[in-house]
Write a protein that binds this DNA or RNA. Structure first.
Length: 595
RNA sequence: GGCCCCGUGGUGUAGCCUGGCUUAACACACCACACUGUCAAUGUGGAGAUCGCCGGUUCGAAUCCGGUCGGGGUCGCCA
């Protein structure tokens, strides 16, 4: 080894030891006489002192050192002179008096500073990712990621789970996300797909009797990117046999409560994790992934809205839509400009507009008159109507009601995001809190108006709740599934379900989804045949692993917890992927490019 | 596919709205010199950008307009 100790581990108990260290020059302070170097390795920083009197030759050579040079230093660990300790670093009580210096490799001046955390253009960071990863924050994130991985593996291992790998080259299943395809050289004109998730494979492992399976596995989806979505991402995928929904939820709550306690104890969670139905979540928050760190719950105002003279309220309800809103506490003083920002905010998310009703401070709701109400639409409202809306929403003097009318899903989407925005503006989302929750009782299917058919909400292997089974023949849209999500702070962390394990039910589901018998055989024949051979009841869940780490790291961007992420246009700025390939490679694969 | 934001020395920004007063400013980094207890070392000096690219308007463009490329956010999409 070129080193005997790690920089960051040195302590007063090591004083007197002769050590050899190796690492990067983090910072250099040249006093003409004394030269100080902060030497950095994975473990942290240690101060090296070059003394021109005791070791003149070594001191002379230290004169040439610059940031990010890789050096090896021999020296003696000494206690720093009284008064020169540095409480800001873990090794601040000691320093290493260098007796020899070897430059292992010099460095160009890096394109951005490694030794501070000032913001750098992300394209530049990605181009020089190996330098970006040297920075403290990224080192911390990837170490956290490792500890999360390790905790999960230990936890599941202790409960009898087996980690089993599944193939990366599998059969394309056109439904769901767009597949990444891999052409076959040996079978001309045929393609593999990279897995969107190991869904069918893990179900086949249940058929095989592996009982409790998990995998931390790369998945691929060729869809547009977002701050929390990459084309290749990692899932914590697991599946169990002979379980019911409650077994899985209980296990996952235990896993995540323990994970946070062990890995990020500075973050607060509360147990039990709340469980709300999909219908409740949509009613109260307008989304199936609510941020539960704050209230600002939505209320339905449709019945009052139809009594008003306001056309947009009445027509929304007449056309089968909704009128919902929530209270922005203490925001009655919002300026015209601030209100316009909110209106633009909801319009950018599809809503026609936003009705704001501000209640002046100073009078109780009962004493208030229309003159105390500030709104674009006061002339269409009576004080009684305003008062009843305020009472229902929980608005009082000094508050502002925010109301959206329109088609239900559009109004919900706009209000859900507006709720997050108001929560953010008012500082209601405590960054030290992880508000985990389960959302349960998802609908089994939703109507696809474009294609005029039912689509699976989760996936076609999800089983219906037993009591809703008859609805499959009469009113599929009302049938609830045994599907569940885990959410946290407004992010969907995972989805899972109890699966169908009987051939006739799976066939029935495929038929409901509009597949012909030929298509069923072509796409899912392997699964249905497996179901003929004694398939246990089973279910599972799959987490967006990167999102878990992102939330634990306190980041709002998945790229911050991935070593080599891709840009929003799915390119790799470091390696330059994707790239053209040699014509011979295409020929080997029986491919020809269209112009 | 739609919408929005950003692009100025190595890095981060100001200047842009309201074109000329800019020889494009500031901080950090870089280079040189000085300096024996600093730790964001300090002091003095120096070098470094024709303002992403192309075109247009104008007597004159970093500044206005169009296009394009790159990055980011978002809607659609993500069973």
């Amino acid at each position: 080894m070129l080193k005997t100790r790690d920089c960051g581990d040195l302590r007063p108990t090591d004083v007197g030891d002769r050590v050899t260290l190796a690492g990067w020059v983090h910072r250099r302070r040249d006093h003409g006489g004394l030269i100080f170097i902060d030497l950095r390795d994975r473990s942290g920083l240690a101060q090296i002192v070059f003394n021109p009197e005791s070791h003149p030759e070594t001191h002379d050579r230290a004169d040439a050192l610059r940031n990010e040079w890789v050096v090896q230093i021999e020296g003696e660990v000494t206690r720093r002179p009284a008064g020169t300790e540095n409480a800001k670093i873990a090794t601040g009580e000691v320093e290493i008096v260098a007796t020899s210096l070897t430059v292992l490799n010099p460095s160009l001046t890096p394109p951005f500073a490694i030794n501070d955390d000032s913001p750098v253009d992300e394209a530049l960071r990605l181009e020089y990712r190996y330098l970006d990863l040297r920075k403290e924050g990224m080192q911390r994130n990837l170490k956290l990621r490792h500890r999360v991985t390790r905790y999960i593996r230990d936890f599941l291992d202790a409960r009898g789970f087996l980690e089993i790998e599944t193939p990366m080259l599998i059969k394309s299943t056109p439904e769901g996300a767009r597949d990444y395809l891999v052409p076959s050289r040996i079978s001309p004109g045929h393609f593999y797909a990279l897995p969107q998730s190991p869904q069918q494979l893990k179900q086949l492992l249940m058929v095989a009797g592996f009982d409790r399976y998990y995998q931390i596995v790369r998945c691929f989806r060729d869809e547009d990117l977002r701050a929390d979505r990459q084309p290749e991402f990692t899932q914590l995928d697991l599946e169990m046999s002979f379980v019911e929904e409650q077994d899985i939820l209980a296990l996952m709550e235990e896993l995540f409560a323990g994970l946070v306690e062990s890995v990020t104890p500075h973050l607060k969670t509360s147990r039990p994790f709340p469980r709300l139905t999909y219908a409740e979540a949509m009613d109260r928050y307008g989304t199936d992934k609510p941020d539960l760190r704050f209230g600002l719950e939505l209320v339905d105002l449709a019945d009052i809205a139809v009594e008003t003279e306001l056309g947009i309220f009445r027509s929304a309800v007449d056309q089968g839509g909704t009128v919902k809103g929530f209270v922005a506490p203490g925001c009655a003083g919002y300026t015209r400009r601030q209100i316009n920002e909110l209106i633009e905010f909801v319009q950018a998310r599809g809503a026609k507009g936003l009705v704001t009703i501000a209640l002046a401070e100073g009078k109780s709701l009962d004493e208030m008159e229309l003159g105390d109400v500030r709104s674009q639409v006061t002339r269409f409202l009576s004080m009684d109507q305003v008062r009843r809306m305020a009472q229902r929403a929980g608005a009082g003097p000094g508050d502002m009601m925010l109301i959206v009318a329109g088609e239900t899903s559009v109004a919900n989407t706009a209000l859900a995001q507006l709720r997050n925005e108001i929560g953010r503006r008012l500082g209601l989302a405590d960054p030290s809190v992880l508000a985990f929750a389960f959302v349960v009782d998802f609908p089994l299917v939703k109507w696809n108006a474009d294609e005029k058919r039912w689509d699976a909400l989760h996936h076609p292997f999800t089983s219906v709740k037993a009591e809703d089974l008859p609805l499959l023949d009469t009113d599929p849209g009302r049938a609830r599934s045994q599907a569940y999500d885990m959410v946290c702070n407004g992010f969907e962390l995972s989805s899972g379900s109890i699966r169908i394990h009987e051939r006739h039910l799976q066939e029935k589901m495929f038929e409901l989804l509009g597949y012909t018998p030929d298509e069923i055989e072509q796409r899912f024949g392997h699964l249905l045949r497996a179901f003929d051979y004694g398939t246990p009841p089973h279910g599972g869940i799959a987490y967006g692993f990167d999102r878990i780490v992102m939330i634990l790291a306190g980041s709002d961007n998945i790229r911050d917890v991935i070593a080599f992420p891709k840009t929003q246009s799915a390119t790799d700025l470091l390696m330059g992927a994707p790239s053209p390939v040699d014509p011979q490679q295409l020929a080997d694969l029986h491919l020809r490019l269209l112009e």
